[in-house]
Design a protein around this nucleic acid. Structure first.
Length: 264
DNA sequence: CGTCCACGTCTAC
DNA sequence: TAGACCTGGACGG
């Protein structure tokens, strides 16, 4: 379930379990041998530390030595990617593809059943994604309202909300909840919707924050590392998986309540 | 058994 | 704008 909230929780989790840990190596599973993509191990590397940050659906790990970041790795977690710290003496979970190993033979593992997760050594955040609605709300809003004349916004709002160039971090459950809470007709063109219903943009910040506080959705296999009210997220979800639905033009299921549809 | 479905990108006609 | 990329859970016969 990784959308904005879950990616942010993963960053918190990584920071929590990597705190004070001294890493010594990076290794890859058999299946990921061909996907090292620029991740190399400097031979002079002794020990390093790891810190994480997220922006929308992008997750960035920084490898640090002597207070200096010497490598940044950007991750897109796909549909099922998540992280698990495995203490010394325990086997990495099935479907682990990438491991950061620390002193004592424990590891931080990237676990991903469907193998849609991707990673890449980078200098900075991806240029293909817009500003994060939670971390950089002002820029996020500006990037949308300043580009409303573009042809992209001729499309229906339910499609544009999934465009990561403008709505970084919004995925299939968040678009359903945003449109529902905004009482927005999902089939209205995005330009009209965004200029007449300011709740949409505001909810792009508020709802991911709420989902984050509730611990996000429960990925199969993925243990939320933090205290969260049991069932809180499921109760919070009011539209996704609960209402009328169609398959959108991109093959994704769009969930909405009939009451949102204002035109025929 | 089989078919359908999944919280996401990518690239190739 | 289809598919491709993947595994596995839910559910039907």
């Amino acid at each position: 379930m990784p959308e904005l909230a879950e990616i942010k929780i993963m960053a918190d989790y990584i920071n929590k379990v990597c705190q004070e840990k001294d890493f010594t190596s990076i290794s890859f599973s058999e299946s990921a041998q061909s996907r090292k993509l620029g991740i190399t191990q400097p031979t002079d590397l002794q020990i390093f530390r790891i810190s994480a940050e997220s922006r929308g659906k992008e997750l960035m790990l920084s490898l640090i030595q002597g207070g200096e970041v010497f490598m940044k790795i950007s991750f897109s977690m796909g549909m099922s990617g998540h992280w698990r710290e495995v203490p010394p003496g325990f086997e990495p979970p099935k479907h682990t593809h990438l491991l950061f190993n620390y002193i004592g033979f424990g590891s931080l593992c990237l676990v991903d059943v469907r193998r849609f997760a991707r990673w890449k050594v980078v200098e900075d955040w991806s240029q293909n994604r817009g500003p994060c609605p939670v971390h950089d709300f002002t820029e996020f809003k500006h990037n949308i309202l300043g580009n409303l004349e573009k042809r992209e916004f001729n499309k229906p709002i339910h499609l544009v909300l999934m465009n990561q160039k403008y709505f970084n971090g919004i995925g299939n459950y968040l678009r359903a909840e945003i449109l529902f809470h905004a009482d927005q007709d999902p089939f209205m063109d995005a330009r009209t919707a965004l200029s007449t219903n300011p709740a949409i943009i505001e909810l792009c910040e508020r709802l991911p924050k709420e989902a984050y506080v509730l611990g996000g959705g429960q990925l199969k296999d993925w243990e939320n590392p933090f205290e969260a009210p049991a069932g809180g997220f499921n109760e919070w979800m009011q539209c996704y998986g609960r209402s009328n639905h169609i398959v959108d033009k991109n093959g994704r299921t769009l969930w909405y309540h009939d009451s949102q549809v204002k035109t025929s």
